[in-house]
Nucleic acid binder design. Structure first.
Lengths: 192, 192, 192, 192
DNA sequence: CATGAATGAGTATTCATTCAT
DNA sequence: TATGAATGAATACTCATTCAT
């Protein structure tokens, strides 16, 4: 009965995805230590034991969530964007557009940013976001469109602001958000 | 020979302060759930039981720390500054000076800001910081020294950045900090 | 395959009853402060944690046991007996029969009496036992079968003796018990 | 300075007696496990540490109190009474008089009886009270003044009733007490 | 001697994990 | 697979005891 086999696999996949998806937000809000499996499972809508069918331990679930948090937060897109043969200010505008829109609309994204940055601050995540942004900044500084200053510090500041609004969105249903233009301006030279 | 009443009072005061002082940083770094009383007491350098002489429970200690986190973070000073009969841009510069210096030098301040803002985000602290800053911003907008825009959003943004660097300082010994001038510029009109 | 709703309910009921049943005797013998949850759980034959699935705290378990101790001690039966349309001396004989037999044969009854009376003495239980017996005594005094004297004091004395033998039974495997007739004679007029 | 030496000794004696006296009642009401040294010392009106100047441990204090509880409860007087060359019924009346009066007036006596009997029930005290009373009962049965029946059981019943009213007095300021005559009648043949 | 703050072993309670159904 | 009752190691909290003053 190959069909039922496949269906089974499908169900597995679905349940696993459900767990991951619902856990991202929960962990982002409450932290690792602040998350009880009993509460989490209620929040997901499954039994406690079910989590342990898919993940060996709370830690493994948390780790998995981290492992994908940079994907959730759009690291791939950013990397691709950086490689495009367009001026840096365009890249920054696009990136800011994408980030602000995602912060507004996608709670998975919000949670991804929060988790990723949290771990970054604790020194446990790699710094690809920062580094990619740094490259764009340097390109922009050469092109004369990005403000002067240490590229690394500017990159950290930019992402700090994104983190800031992610954390806000985590707790407030509709956080007062800055505009995409405002965010971009953090890096871009004023054109007055 | 019994200990004198005053000496006892003194000792109690000292120990209590020691616990609060050392706990602020510990809780700010690890959160409520992430803090074990056994670890905390080791960090303070006292026995576990001693904490319970001064606080009924871990929760009560945490609450007390929150209750005073706005003082630690300098709410009083800010309120006083707001009332001074000087131009808003001066107030903002002074405030930014004070904040950046404190973030660099004073661990307790860093922890206070982190805890206070964390609770603010969770909607459990009053918003006096925001409100006081809002007033200064409005004053500055009248005086033509502060950038246009919704005063509340600007205030939140300004404090968001302070929070950002507080969180960074919490985890990194010497976080790359923006300058006091950079922080002030978030609110002030460019004088080019 | 999830467990059926009913089966789960059943299991919960069973375990809860087991805990209550075994705790009654343990608490009656050792008192609240003298009972360790670790010992109690061993005595019940379950893990410490299991107790906390059914009761919020040691205190709550103790309170529940007290709350039902009047049932265990047969308050219902006594009330019913009092209402029967038979002479008071018959009621007293029946009651004494029941009490002495239960004290001999039923550990739970022994514990129930001990706990209930203990709380009565501490002024925390209602006095329904006393009051019901008081009514029977007054009826008997009218009928000329019960000794003269303050009905309340006689009632207290009667139940005091029951308590006395309950406490004895609590500590001694086979306590030398008075006979049902001896107990009844505490209230009944001598028929010599 | 021999004088101050003596005075010191005196003070020691006084404090020690104070502790014992106040502890008897406290332990009788709350039991060993139910008594906290912190509470007890407050009740006595001294510091916790002071208790440990006079007693090595809580257990030692408790043991000492037990060791004297039979004296407090009047074992000496009973033994002397038993040896007097008078009829048993007189002895029983005197004894009952003494017991009821003491239960009414002397809270140390009340506590002594409660503690002694409690330990008796737990099988940890010697049974001199019972035995002495047994002898008197046997004497009375020979003299025809005491009711028939197993002397030991009668003795236990008699002391049970004394215990009963002791426990009552422990918790109620003025417990409704049976009369000395009523108590004596438990053993004595009716003279109608 | 007397004090009461401090200690840490002991006890209560929680919660990640297991397992029979 | 999915369930949730049960487990027991980890954690919070208490209290007899010590000791510097």
């Amino acid at each position: 009965m190959p069909k039922s086999q496949e269906r089974c696999q499908e169900i597995r996949e679905e349940t696993r995805n459900l767990i991951v998806k619902k856990s991202v937000l929960y962990f982002a809000r409450n932290g690792f230590a602040g998350t009880r499996i009993s509460d989490l499972s209620k929040h997901i809508g499954i039994a406690q034991g079910t989590i342990y069918i898919y993940f060996k331990s709370k830690e493994e679930l948390y780790d998995e969530i981290f492992a994908i948090s940079d994907k959730i937060a759009g690291n791939d897109k950013l990397t691709m964007l950086a490689k495009l043969p367009v001026p840096a200010d365009q890249k920054i505008k696009k990136m800011s557009d994408y980030l602000i829109r995602s912060l507004k609309e996608d709670e998975m994204f919000v949670a991804g940013i929060a988790l990723y940055t949290q771990r970054l601050l604790e020194g446990e995540a790699d710094q690809s976001f920062y580094k990619t942004t740094e490259k764009i900044i340097k390109q922009g500084q050469k092109e004369g469109t990005v403000v002067a200053g240490n590229a690394r510090k500017l990159s950290e500041f930019y992402w700090g602001i994104v983190y800031l609004y992610a954390v806000k969105s985590l707790y407030t249903a509709d956080a007062a958000m800055i505009s995409s233009a405002d965010l971009a301006r953090v890096l871009l030279e004023d054109r007055k």
